[in-house]
Design a protein around this nucleic acid. Structure first.
Length: 466
RNA sequence: UCCCCGGUAGCUCAAUGGCAGAGCGGGUGGCUGUUAACCACUAGGUUGAUGGUUCGAGUCCGUCCCGGGGAGCCA
């Protein structure tokens, strides 16, 4: 099959392509007719935001085809790259040949030239990647995913594939999805006395993972530095612009790293990702700045350059208590910081991203390392303006006795975590890690307000279409 | 799950309890190296569902469904 030149390449070096005959393949974004015998077809192939103006003339042998080349159609155009006398573009393609792969009925094609609401586009998730905003978000997400691998691979991390189906309700991080082959509409044959998992696929309770961290720890204590990057699932009934039931998470885990090292890696990581977006997704960032969030470019510049503030939970509580802000949730040492508190810290106190460390022991999961004060744990949250928490991490408890005490205090059955405990019995070592929600990162670097727009097929309570 | 706001033409939205409307999109015609093109004409409606109040309900009340914003939970 014929292969065209990506339109991004043409715009990337216009001088080089001028006068050359090329093929482009893509979808008609819009079409402007002129009775002077010319027709302007804007073609977008997804390689870049901007479309290429293809000039079709009515005296060419493809003239009979033009009536069907409507908005949304898939076409091939071959012709000479020429300087454009018109305004909005420097180059255009003067078509010698046009092939129509698939037409689109203008009466029923759901995408119009004008702006649609995100709510409407969500109902046509099979067509919305063709819009400017969703297309740009998908490109940025792809570039970020690559940058995530780059960052870790270049630093000697190994990519670990942790299981999607897990047997343990890990760390009780929220509600979990059950995995079963049993038919919920058919009652158990043996009645209430029967083992409900007899006849089920795994012959025991099984769930979709909420985190790959515990398994990543296994490999950190063998390969040194590892990371997982994959889908995770939460069955929380959360209806907000920041939550999904299925989302992607990056979780590095590093042996012989304490919380300070962990924080250093996390901050370098964020900075690297923001720099990649600024340097390699310029056009898309400029688009988001113009149509989605005017403060975005400045915020990204700020995040790439300025140093992140790092303060302890205890200091953060002091700052909040001294402030004269009328918080809905009163601040006291020991409370979980609320969205309003996080917003106040990032937006009013620091004016940028911030990291909070050393949280009260009672607030955090059993695996976090207890500090010498015995009241706090070596945890960190990285907060960004707008999105809130984007990274959560900690140094893990490597001391057997302390881990067992933590599990007792939090009511975690040791029997379910034999393997996790054994990691502390056989060659235990200090180690740390963190988790970053990919979708929240994409929200942060694009300014897109609703998380349902930064993932192709959002799963939320009551919604699993496509 | 809780609080607030909303659901009217394909899309985005108007309409004191009193004739169902506009812009865009579609169709037809005109004009033009066009740029969210422009001009004229035209088709297009069970006002989310259901029950009630009223001479009369898009509008008021009850219930339900769906969407948005905020909160909680979290990444």
């Amino acid at each position: 099959m014929e292969k065209g030149v990506p339109i991004a390449n043409l715009f990337g070096d216009e001088q080089k392509w001028l006068g050359k005959t090329v093929i482009v393949q893509g979808w008609v974004k819009t079409r402007r007719d002129s009775k002077a015998g010319v027709c302007f077809i804007e073609v977008n192939d997804g390689s870049t935001l901007k479309g290429l103006q293809v000039l079709a003339e009515e005296d060419k042998n493809y003239a009979g085809l033009l009536a069907k080349v409507t908005t949304g159609s898939a076409i091939l155009a071959e012709g000479v790259v020429s300087a454009s006398p018109g305004k909005g573009q420097r180059i255009e393609l003067r078509a010698e040949r046009i092939h129509l792969y698939g037409s689109a009925d203008p009466a029923t094609y759901p995408l119009q030239k004008k702006r649609h609401s995100f709510e409407y586009l969500r109902q046509i998730a099979h067509l919305r990647p063709r819009t400017n905003t969703l297309g740009a978000a998908a490109r940025v997400r792809s570039r970020l995913s690559f940058a995530i691998h780059q960052f870790f691979q270049l630093r000697g991390f190994h990519y670990i594939h942790t299981p999607i189906i897990t047997a343990s309700d890990c760390e009780g991080a929220g509600e979990i999805f059950r995995v079963t082959t049993l038919d919920p509409t058919r009652p158990l044959a043996g009645g209430v006395s029967e083992d409900p998992y007899r006849g089920d696929f795994f012959a025991r309770p099984a769930f979709l993972t909420v985190s790959g961290q515990l398994q990543a720890e296994i490999f950190a204590l063998a390969l040194g530095k590892v990371y997982t990057f994959g889908p995770t699932f939460r069955a929380e009934n959360s209806n907000t612009s920041r939550h999904l039931a299925e989302f992607w998470m990056v979780e590095p885990e590093m042996a012989f790293h304490d919380l300070g090292d962990d924080l250093e890696v996390a901050l370098a990581f964020i900075r690297h990702l923001v720099e990649v977006v600024l340097n390699e997704c310029e056009e898309d960032v400029e688009f988001f700045g113009r149509f989605i969030d005017s403060e975005l470019p400045a915020r990204l510049q700020n995040a790439a350059k300025s140093s992140f503030e790092v303060i302890t939970y205890t200091d953060a509580v002091d700052i909040l208590k001294r402030s004269r802000e009328g918080f809905v949730y009163p601040v006291e040492w020991g409370i979980d910081l609320q969205a309003e508190h996080e917003r106040y810290l990032t937006e009013k106190v620091f004016g940028g991203p911030a990291a909070i460390i050393d949280f009260p022991r009672a607030l955090k999961p059993f695996y976090m390392r207890v500090n010498d004060d015995e009241k706090t744990v070596a945890a960190m949250d990285i907060l960004v303006p707008g999105t809130g928490e984007i990274i959560g991490g900690s140094q893990r408890e490597e001391r057997l006795e302390m881990l067992l005490e933590q599990m007792r205090l939090k009511g975690i059955p040791a029997d379910d975590y034999r393997w996790y405990i054994e990691l502390r019995e056989f060659g235990s070592a200090p180690h740390s890690g963190f988790g970053l929600g990919l979708e929240r990162l994409v929200q942060f670097v694009t300014g897109i307000p609703n998380i349902r727009e930064v993932i192709a097929f959002p799963r939320t309570p009551g919604h699993a279409e496509f």
